[in-house]
Amino acid sequence: MENTKLIVSSTPHIRSKDSIQSIMRDVLIALTPAALMGIWYFGIKALLIIAISIASSIFFEAAFQKITKKSITITDLSAAVTGLLLAMNLPVEIPFWLPIVGAFFAIIVAKQLFGGLGQNFINPALAARAFLLASYPTPMTNFTSPTGLFANSDTVAKATSLADAVSNATPLSRLNEGAFIPEISDYIDALSGNIGGCIGETCAIALIIGGIYLLVRRVISWRIPVTYILTVFILSWFFGRTPLYELLIGGLMLGAFFMATDYSSSPVTPLGQLIMGFGCGVLTALIRSYGSYPEGVSYSILLMNLAVPLIDRYTKPKIFGEVKKNDK
C-alpha cells in the first residue's frame, strides 16, 4: 500500500460499452438478412460481388492509410460496412471489376480524401453508386429478375436474353410506364424480395428487420427513417400513385434505414434529423413521380447530404435556461 502508483484521469471514470467497432458490427449484422436474401435470389454471383466489394473497400482503406502514414483503422469495420452497402446497391449483372472501381471511389475519393471516418460529407457508398451510374450506365441499369441461388451463369444469360422486358423490369419502371396496378402477389413479391433490383434492396422485410435491430440497439434513432418513409407514403398517395407498394420497392427501405442514417453525412441535431428524413422523402417522391429516372432514393440522400451542415447550423437544440440576448 505504501508505494501504490495510482492512475489519474479526468472525469467521467466510467464509459459506455459502445464503440465505433461495436456500432459498425451492429450495422453489418443488420444488413446480413437482406444480403443473404439477395444471394438467395440472385445467386452465387451476388455473393462474389459482395465479397469483392468488401475486400477491396478494406484494401483501399488500409492502403491509403499506409501510404499516408496514418494509423490503420480497418478494425473499426467502417470500411467493411461501406463495402457491403456498395455491393447491395449494385445490380448483379455487372462485371467483377466494377465493385473494385466503386470501392476505390467510395473509400479514397468520398471518404479518405475528405479526412476519413466522420469527415466525409456525403455517403461514400452512395457517392460511388452515383459515380458508377454516371460512368457505366449500361451495366448499372441492367436489372435481372431473380433467378435463384443455384442458377448458373448460363441460365442467367438465357433469362436475360430470352426476355429483355423481364430482365429490365423493376417494379418502379413498370409503375412509371403506367397501367400497372399491383396485386396482392406483387406485394408479397416486393416484401420477400422476389423482384428485380439491386442485390440488397429487393427484400423489404429483411431490410425492415435489420432496421428494427438498429433501432433496438440504439445505433440509429427513429427520426430519419420514420419521417423519410412517412413522407414518401403521404406524397405518393397525394400524387395518385400506389403509396403502400411504393414503400416496398426500389431502394427506399435500404436508403431510409441504412444510407440516410449514415452518421457523418446526416445531421446530429434531433430536429435536423427530422428535416433530413422529410427532405429525402420529398425528393424521392418527386423524382419517382416526375423525374426521368425511375428511382430517386440515392440522389435524394446525396442531395440532402449536401444540406447537412446548413441543417445542423439552424437546428441547434434549445439551451437549458437560455437567456434571451435582449435581456442583458
Binding site: I7, H13, R15, S19, T73, G116, Y263, S266, P267, V268
Partner: peptide, 13 residues
Amino acid sequence: AVLPPENNCIRCG
C-alpha cells in the same frame, strides 16, 4: 480502471 483510447468523432450525435 483502464479507459479506452480516443478516436475521431464519427458524428453520431
